[in-house]
Design a protein around this nucleic acid. Structure first.
Length: 562
RNA sequence: UGGGCCGUCGACUAAUGGUAGGUCAAGUGCCUUUGGAGCACUUUGUCUAGGUUCGAAUCCUAGCGGCCCAGCCA
């Protein structure tokens, strides 16, 4: 059972849409789109945009398209479009229309011709360097290009020849004729088309010229009759241009609305930097469970419900904030608590021998699969004379407040018996090898008939029945909340957490886990949530720790140590 | 420095001129065959200074602080 999503708080996007619907704008119709560029994998930041684009449209009975903004063939690849489709679906959303900006190359070309004929666009022979120089600066206006006042005929002729592939890359561009002295740099005769003799993953070699984002995005929205085009804050300066093209072309007036991106502590959303991590081998790939990509989180064991609930709870505004990772982890635990089956697993084994338990006896103990969900039923767990418990669950010299096993103390083995530690065996180096205990046969199942209480219940696995497993524990990829907070001369890689991955080669699992299917999620009692990694082999499962359980004792101990 | 956007508990976010509320985090207690979960409670906030108003987080002015923009990337 998935957790119920938090009540959606009001936000300015919903307010705008609600008002438009109420006033009957566009006949009350709501159409949105999610427009990724297929040049990388989707991350948790995109999940916010996806939830907004799909979620808001859905709330108002509207529709959402998935549109690939594939106007830069040099960076894009079919691999990315497939992963993006997969991730959107995994998150739980279904698009109405599937489009590509490249579907519109023909129409865009026609519209460029119209702008030229109307005297609103011109071919510029300047080099990129010259264009940059003439653009001016933040404080100084730009200068008109010497090619700005070419005749319509000449512009038409040149642009048609650009399209025909007559000119080399970078030799000319088509520019909108707006205002070289605008305080908004985007309005200083922005480039509409560049020459790029590059093979496009969908249109092949058909086009030697490609439209820029600014000459594709708004028009694509318009073609799809998008009513509310939501994008991130850094595009706010592009809105006047977005509107300008729509007005000059006299086409459907889509409206752009900007919102803040999602930022999270201890990670980063920059595709460029994530790509570096992948390419430099700092992680195992885009799917590495430490990555903030949706594919990484999926492999880590995060659920789509948890991510959606988190995104909703984090909200949306126009403020640049950074959400604490702890909040995401809260929603992951909340969701998994309700759905994950409980099992017993010992990550760092310590051998326990119950001296007064019959040598060859095995008992099948009843264990509850999920205390949050009675319908999950029960299972049998074998109990025998030699067990493993967690090394952390025994202290020869227990500190104050430590309730677990220690010499002379009695604890409960979950679903098993009360046991008391009697003696220790150490190796020649003085390291603890095994603990000899006695058990109380009257406490089977974990209850004492005399009403005797123990302060602690610990988990265990029967040594003879244990399944060996590899367990990968993850910490944050970066050791600083803000990975970009570095000393001069360093970059974000200096903040990589050297302990972000801990591989445990010899964890001991209860036998029910021998055939756990890939991607299945479990709670290892008292430890955390874990899911089965695709690297698993028959008889040798590999588990990823999704998130640890809250650890009150660790907190207490930390405080005592100061 | 020109333009744009934005400043509310430690974090995120509501309050649409009329009781500053919610979630996370932190803390306390209860409960517990997971030191889990759950339940109850608690702490902390409107960037500053003026102004308008019966009344300002909200409107106005100024200041301070942050983010974005000078790709033939998106």
């Amino acid at each position: 059972m998935a957790s119920s999503p938090p009540a959606a708080p009001s936000n300015f996007l919903r307010d705008i849409i609600a008002e438009d619907v109420k006033s009957g704008k566009h006949g009350g119709r709501v159409q949105t789109r999610f427009p990724p560029e297929p040049n990388g994998y989707l991350h948790i930041g995109h999940a916010k945009a996806i939830c907004l684009d799909f979620g808001l449209a859905d709330e108002f009975g509207g529709h959402t398209n998935l549109r690939f903004d594939d106007t830069n063939p040099e960076k894009e690849d079919i691999e990315y479009v497939e992963s993006i489709k997969n991730d959107v679906n995994w998150l739980g959303f279904r698009w109405d229309g599937l489009y590509y900006a490249s579907d519109y190359f023909g129409q865009l070309y026609e519209w460029a011709i119209k702008l030229i004929k109307d005297g609103n666009a011109y071919v510029d022979d300047s080099s990129a360097e010259e264009i940059r120089k003439n653009r001016g600066t933040l404080t100084e206006p730009g200068k008109d290009s010497p090619y700005r006042n070419r005749s319509v005929e000449e512009n038409l002729n040149l642009f048609e020849r650009m399209r025909a592939g007559e000119f080399p890359d970078g030799s000319r561009v088509l520019r909108a004729k707006i205002d070289m002295s605008s305080p908004n740099l985007n309005m200083r005769d922005p480039v509409m088309y560049r020459i790029l003799h590059a093979r496009h993953h969908r249109t092949g070699d058909k086009w030697p010229i490609y439209p820029m984002y600014d000459f594709a995005h708004g028009q694509s929205d318009s073609l799809e009759k998008v009513t509310h085009s939501m994008c991130s804050l850094e595009f706010a300066d592009h809105q006047p241009l977005y509107n300008w093209f729509i007005a000059q072309l006299g086409i459907f007036p889509s409206r752009q609305i900007e919102f803040d991106r999602l930022s999270l502590t201890y990670t980063m959303m920059s595709k460029r930097k994530l790509r570096r991590l992948v390419e430099e081998g700092r992680v195992t790939g885009w799917h590495d469970p430490r990555m903030p990509t949706l594919s990484g989180m999926r492999r880590r064991g995060y659920t789509p419900e948890a991510i959606r609930n988190f995104v909703t709870a984090a909200g949306v505004s126009r403020t640049n904030g950074i959400v604490e990772l702890a909040m995401l982890e809260h929603f992951v635990r909340e969701d998994l608590n309700k759905r994950a089956l409980r099992v017993m697993a010992v990550l760092k084994p310590l051998k326990i021998i119950i001296d007064n338990y019959p040598e060859n006896q095995v008992e099948e103990m009843d264990a509850v699969n999920n205390p949050e969900d009675a319908s999950a039923g029960t299972r049998k767990v074998p109990f025998s004379r030699v067990l493993y418990i967690e090394q952390d669950d025994f202290r020869e010299d227990p500190p104050k407040g430590y309730f677990r096993l220690s010499p002379g103390r009695e604890v409960r083995l979950r679903y098993g018996y009360f046991i008391t530690a009697k003696s220790l065996v150490k190796n020649e180096k003085g390291e603890l090898i095994e603990v000899h205990c006695t058990y109380d046969p009257a406490t089977r199942g974990g209850n004492s008939p005399d009403g005797r209480k123990v302060k602690s219940t610990i988990h265990w696995v029967s040594a003879a029945h244990a399944v060996d497993a590899v367990v990968r524990n993850y910490e944050t990829l970066f050791s600083k909340e803000n990975p970009d907070d570095v000393a001069p001369g360093q970059d974000f890689t200096a903040n990589l957490n050297p302990n972000s991955l801990e591989v445990i080669a010899d964890a001991k699992l209860e036998p029910s886990l021998a055939s756990a299917a890939v991607a299945n999620r479990y709670q290892f009692e008292r430890l955390g949530y874990f899911c089965v990694d695709p690297d698993s082999k028959p008889g040798k499962p590999v588990f990823n720790r999704t998130v640890a359980l809250k650890d009150t004792w660790a907190k207490v101990e930390r405080k005592h140590k100061g």
